[in-house]
Design a binder for these strands. Structure first.
Lengths: 342, 342
DNA sequence: TTCTAAATCGAAAACGTTTTCGATTTAACG
DNA sequence: CGTTAAATCGAAAACGTTTTCGATTTAGAA
């Protein structure tokens, strides 16, 4: 029952551990005959190399860490899937941690992963995170690091993102194109870069089209959680504050769906009275009614590419090459549905 | 930059490696004075024990493996969240793998996890899986194993499930209670136990209420994927086959939502003409219109409890106790919404 | 046959930790 | 001061692998 070791194979064949090890790795300095013999008895005894020993000797674990703000989330679970699939192809396993949008947890988890000596770390930042010492620590320990989606521009590492500003601009421009004149924006929390960028894209589209930018039309998510309830709350407030709104660009599909629910409940017709555009293209957006116009955010692709960049850095570091960080910007597209038909 | 080892601390203080190690673990046979000294210099030098060496020595990795059929899935991502959170509390990390409902992949992934020498494995079976040698291999290697949701009854290990039969019975009974006489069932694929059990619950409810059980009203998911499209396809076929249907119990919310979409498109009124009950209580079910009556399946709880059972077995094995497997059945509840109002 | 080169093997160190057990020092007491 | 017990320490083995480098064997050529 106890697991087989090189030593046992060696004893069984009356040869040295060294030779067994080399035979299994097809070293040219062990004869074809013994190589074959060793291979056969190894598989007969169902030998599996002891990862712990291999790790210690080779100083690598073939495991990477992934820190993500939330797991139960259409976009992020797609990212996870992309990362796990791509990693498996290259022989890497993925440890997943959820930061719960908390900076403190994120810090602890980075520490945990470093102490486990993972071969690399993938991270999408918590909304709270405004200080980056923990990330710089990763870099200074020469552990490969790649950030995706919710990134910090200042941190020197590879990144995979979308152009949030451009996408938000596209979304807002679409509202303008179909005739909206007074467009509100439900934005995300203050800190995260993508929340800021989406807001800036919205603002720029207004200005470029000679529409007034009115700060009172921008609703910030104060609770930090982009929920269905948040959308209902904001929509309700918006109807009280402004009677003349004819379009809303909303930071996240889930919030947009909450907003639409509240608007409809209060008798607003979508898209006749108010057009709504979301962001992310959750599956849900396609099946509610009215179906939601939104920006497609390629989660799977983002996951795959993030791992690829990390893998590249792992390889480069092993070869002691100088590594140059890449910033990959993935394409987004506007998916037009019933919430903005004119 | 190179990482600090016990040896370096020992040399710096002019004491032995042994003492340093023991001091950091608060052994009583090293004086309080040296203990303090060691602790201080260790934290000063930012010492982190080398996991690889610790693993090799202690023969445990503090990592568990999780194999799941799909990641992008409301129920399963909730389970993941539950497991990861609970594991973290006990100092364990979680490696996640997606079997993609494939038996071959599942086998490979079990092998991978065993060769990584994880301290335990959590698994929800692929739909395809009908042979359990790979699982019995886990057990015979004395690696703790817990199955959840999609389980195999024959395999001797702890399990966390819901009573699918009872839940399906409840769902069907509800349809009967509101007056349905001809109730169809969209079931899952042939193999998985929960697909079978939900079907049996449906059938038993009919019989107990003196309603005819008509096999032609049961639609099997042949493609093996419980998708939105599957629901549309089945609903369309159902309308062709049977004109007198007044209720449908559907294996999964996603399929139910697809079915409702198709029904509405074809002019059927829900719930006036046909009442629909889903299964799982995805978030989506609460926000579509009409909102979907469904069975709440506690994903988070299932995840937490699965880890707890695994943890229990890990502890028991370490103490060489005899382990007795548990089968935990979690409660479900019927959530009544607009798709079945009478 | 003898010498040289190539082919084949194995001893040993190393990775960094944990833990056993024996050695040494200190304290306590008669 | 001598004896004993308690307190404190460290040498060494062990976990299982990888890899260097030297040793031995074999084959080939002269």
């Amino acid at each position: 029952m106890a697991l087989v070791t090189l030593k046992q194979i060696a004893e069984k064949l009356g040869i040295s551990i060294t030779t067994v090890s080399k035979a299994l790795k097809e070293y040219p300095d062990v004869s074809k005959k013994t190589r074959k013999l060793v291979r056969e008895t190894a598989s007969m005894l169902n030998y599996k190399p002891n990862s712990f020993a291999v790790n210690l000797r080779t100083k690598e674990s073939k495991i990477i860490g992934l820190i993500i703000p939330v797991i139960v989330h259409h976009f992020f679970s797609s990212v996870i899937k992309g990362i796990v699939a791509q990693a498996e192809k290259k022989g890497y396993l993925v440890i997943i941690l959820q930061s719960n949008e908390s900076y403190e947890l994120e810090k602890k988890q980075i520490d945990l992963l470093l102490s486990k000596r993972v071969d690399g770390i993938l991270i999408s930042l918590a909304n709270e995170t405004a200080d980056f010492k923990h990330l710089n620590q990763v870099i200074s320990q020469e552990t490969p690091l790649v950030m995706f989606d919710k990134i910090a521009k200042i941190v020197k590492c590879s990144k995979v993102i979308i152009d949030d500003r451009k996408a938000a601009y596209k979304a807002t421009q679409h509202l303008i194109d179909i005739g909206c004149k007074r467009i509100a924006h439900f934005r995300g929390p203050l800190l995260p870069q993508n929340s800021i960028d989406r807001f800036l894209g919205y603002k720029k589209a207004l200005i470029d089209n000679n529409l007034e930018y009115d700060p009172s039309l921008v609703y910030i998510c104060e609770c930090g959680e982009m929920s269905f309830e948040e959308g209902k709350k904001n929509a309700s407030q918006l109807l009280k504050d402004h009677k003349d709104i004819d379009g809303i660009f909303i930071n996240t599909d889930l919030v947009a769906i909450g907003a639409m629910t509240e608007l409809i409940k209060q008798g607003v017709k979508i898209p006749e009275d108010i057009s709504v555009v979301g962001f992310s293209n959750w599956f849900m957006a396609s099946i509610i009614s009215p179906s939601l116009t939104t920006i497609n955010q390629p989660g799977l692709e983002m996951g795959k590419n993030s791992f690829k960049l990390l893998y590249k850095e792992i390889k480069e570091r092993k070869k002691k090459k100088t590594i140059n960080y890449k910033e990959l910007v993935l394409e987004t597209e506007l998916v037009i549905r019933d919430s903005t038909k004119n």
